[in-house]
């Protein structure tokens, strides 16, 4: 079992240390490396779709 709280705290710590400018690159690396470690492309893609929700860019109703 992943200890989500520990992960949450570690991410916050890294983001504070790296600062806003480096944050996107850091998170992109994390996503790619975690997806790779997961070893399941389908699940990784589903997680991406899930995480893209509720972030302002509204889905196109025509789609």
């Amino acid at each position: 079992m992943t200890d989500t709280e520990t992960l949450y705290e570690a991410l916050a710590g890294h983001l504070d240390t790296l600062g806003q400018d480096a944050a996107p690159l850091f998170l992109a690396k994390v996503a790619l490396a975690m997806g790779h470690a997961l070893g399941d492309t389908g699940r990784a893609l589903a997680i991406l779709d899930d995480c893209a929700q509720d972030l302002g860019a509204q889905p196109d109703p025509a789609q």
Binding site: P24, L25, A28, L32, A33
Partner: peptide
């Protein structure tokens, strides 16, 4: 551009990237 840089940065230590 961001993902390209993420891949290159990871590649410094991880051949798969």
């Amino acid at each position: 551009s961001l993902m390209r840089d993420a891949a290159l940065s990871l590649a410094l230590h991880h051949p798969w990237a």
